[in-house]
Amino acid sequence: MPTWASWTIAALAIRIGLPFAWASTPLGTRGATHLLLNAYRREGLETAERQYLSRLAPRRAGLQLFNLALALDRAGDQDCAHAVYRRAAECGFPPAMANLAYGLSRRGEEDEAQDWYRRAVEAGYPRGVPEQADGE
Rank of each mutant, 00 (worst) to 15 (best):
S105I: 04
C80V: 01
A75W: 03
L12G: 12
A48H: 02
T33A: 05
N67R: 04
N67T: 03
L63A: 01
W7S: 08
T29W: 01
L72H: 03
G128E: 07
Q64I: 04
T25F: 13
A89C: 11
T33E: 00
R41C: 11
R87V: 04
C91A: 15
G44M: 05
C80M: 11
L104R: 03
A133K: 13
Y102S: 10
R41S: 10
A5I: 10
T25E: 14
R74F: 00
R30H: 07
L45V: 06
L45K: 01
E49K: 14
S24L: 10
A83W: 00
R127Q: 14
E46W: 10
E122S: 05
P130E: 03
G103W: 05
G44P: 07
A120W: 00
G128F: 12
V121S: 12
L56A: 08
A69N: 08
G17N: 14
W4T: 09
Q114H: 03
S105C: 08
P19S: 14
Q78S: 07
A10N: 06
R15K: 14
G62D: 03
P94F: 01
F66G: 04
W22T: 02
L100Y: 06
P126K: 11
Q132A: 08
A120Q: 00
R15N: 13
R106T: 05
P95K: 06
A48T: 05
P130Y: 07
R55Q: 15
A83D: 04
Y117H: 08
Y85Q: 08
R59F: 15
E46P: 02
A113V: 03
L68P: 01
S105A: 11
F93V: 10
R41Q: 14
P58M: 09
L35Q: 10
L104V: 03
S105V: 00
G62A: 10
P19E: 09
R127W: 11
E43W: 06
G31S: 11
L68V: 02
L35C: 12
W4R: 14
R60G: 01
A23R: 02
A101F: 05
L56P: 06
R127M: 12
R60H: 09
A75H: 10
A57D: 14
L56K: 04
S24Q: 08
P58C: 13
S24K: 13
A71Q: 10
Y52H: 12
R59Q: 14
L45I: 06
E131A: 10
R55V: 05
L70Q: 08
L104S: 00
A133D: 02
C80T: 08
A5Q: 15
V121F: 08
L45T: 08
A113L: 06
A61T: 11
W22K: 05
E131M: 03
E136W: 13
A10L: 07
Y40S: 02
C80L: 05
G92N: 12
E43G: 03
